[in-house]
């Protein structure tokens, strides 16, 4: 497990679990650069194919995280993998729906469901 100031990274098999933490909404631009580099380095490593974004620790998020998710998805796609999202709050699901991201990726209630969805991906 790798815990940054605002994002926790865990590896389970060939899947990287990306968990924005409660403090994510208070990120600064300086934090953002460091955290983003750390995430991309992990996704680019040979061991990682899929990404699960666990939104269970943040009550809401905006376009910054949406843009991150697109970037992570593209990176995973480039390696034959995909991205799944889990544990979003009610407002979080609204944000994903507004961006139409629920048409791109599976949105799951729990991390376990998200991981299971990737087994056949």
């Amino acid at each position: 497990m790798s815990e940054g100031k605002h994002v926790r990274l865990e590896q389970e098999g060939d899947t990287l679990i990306v968990t924005p933490l409660f403090t994510f909404s208070r990120f600064t631009e300086g934090d953002l650069v460091g955290e983003w580099n750390r995430i991309l380095n992990r996704i680019d490593s040979d061991e990682i194919k899929h990404v699960v974004v666990d939104l269970g620790h943040i009550p809401y998020f905006g376009s910054t995280l949406l843009d991150w998710m697109v970037q992570m998805w593209k990176r995973a796609q480039g390696k034959g993998g995909t991205l799944a999202v889990c544990s979003a709050s009610q407002v979080g699901r609204e944000v994903l729906g507004v961006a139409k991201f629920d048409t791109l990726w599976g949105i799951y209630g729990s991390r376990q469901e998200a991981k299971e969805s990737l087994l056949n991906a």
């Binding site: 697109v70 593209k74 961006a99």
Partner: peptide, 21 residues
């Protein structure tokens, strides 16, 4: 329009979409 399927993978326009929503 960031919700147009052709633009879903792009990184711009979602902030304004959220404001309007």
């Amino acid at each position: 329009d960031p919700t147009d399927p052709a633009n879903l993978e792009k990184v711009s326009g979602r902030g304004l979409l959220l404001m309007r929503t």
